[in-house]
């Protein structure tokens, strides 16, 4: 219990520090580390595209297959399109991407920052008059904030594509029918509900990863421990946030 409280405090502290740095950098835009941000963006965004496309494609296919298999008993095959469309755009796309990013990039962030701490690189930065939050953390989190929404969009499209293929091959639903039915089943709201969550997921993953990275002490064991903690906590928080969003959207009627 105490530990959870401490985690909350650490999270809030990092968020506060980040906001301070954002305000400071905004007033002096030249201090923003563009090169580093682009470099991170390549690693967490560009290079994640193939695996994200593959996994979401598979998830979309499985959803469609299961939907058709069970709906067929009621002669309601066609509703699989509604299910895949709404589920992928609202929930599954963003969650799968967030979980992937937490496992792929969150762990990398924690391990990198942790090993930099172990080698006193962070101390070296500080003694040269640099703020580690500005130099190390801000570019990483900005990169996530850009990458996760893009990956979510790509992932959702890939999942729907997978679903459409399975619906066609396994369920005998013609792509034309799929598309026109999809148009009726979903609205822009459905899409927006999913997309608006993406930057929040990015923030949660990034902050948890950086907090854990800066907690690493001298040993290799500690590095492993915090990397694990980073992924577990990030995924847990992603799910919790998704639940909170679901409640929020339900109460505003979207």
């Amino acid at each position: 219990m105490v530990e959870v409280g401490q985690d909350l405090v650490d999270f809030a502290r990092m968020l506060g520090e980040l906001i301070t740095v954002v305000v400071r950098v905004a007033s002096r835009p030249r201090t923003f580390r563009l090169t580093s941000t682009v470099n991170q963006l390549e690693r967490v965004g560009w290079r994640a595209v193939p695996i994200v496309l593959l996994i979401t494609f598979l998830i979309g296919s499985i959803l469609a297959q299961q939907g058709i298999f069970h709906f067929r008993k009621f002669g309601a095959d066609i509703y699989v399109i509604d299910m895949v469309g709404v589920l992928v755009l609202r929930e599954v796309g963003v969650i799968i991407v967030a979980v992937m990013v937490a496992g792929r990039s969150g762990s990398a962030y924690t391990a990198e920052l942790g090993s930099m701490r172990m080698r006193e690189e962070v101390d070296a930065l500080r003694t040269m008059g640099f703020d580690p939050t500005e130099v190390l953390i801000l570019p990483r989190i900005v990169a996530l904030l850009i990458a996760v929404p893009i990956l979510t969009f790509l992932g959702s499209m890939s999942a729907i594509y997978g679903g459409a293929l399975v619906a066609w091959g396994y369920g005998g639903i013609n792509p034309d029918v799929f598309l026109s039915r999809l148009k009726e089943a979903i609205s822009l709201d459905t899409f927006e509900v999913g997309m608006i969550k993406a930057p929040f997921m990015a923030l949660v993953i990034g902050i948890v990863a950086c907090v854990e990275g800066f907690k690493v002490e001298g040993s290799a064991e500690s590095l492993g421990l915090h990397t694990t903690a980073s992924v577990v906590k990030a995924i847990f928080l992603v799910i919790v946030f998704d639940g909170l969003f679901a409640m929020f959207f339900a109460s505003i009627g979207k």
Partner: peptide, 29 residues
């Protein structure tokens, strides 16, 4: 801080930067 230099026990070079970039890092800033 600009008037002191520090040599850490393990060197604490930035592992993602080359030797050149490490030495240039404070100057560039």
């Amino acid at each position: 801080e600009r008037r002191w230099g520090i040599l850490f026990q393990q060197g604490a070079l930035f592992s993602s930067l080359t030797v050149r970039q490490n030495v240039q890092f404070p100057m560039r800033e």
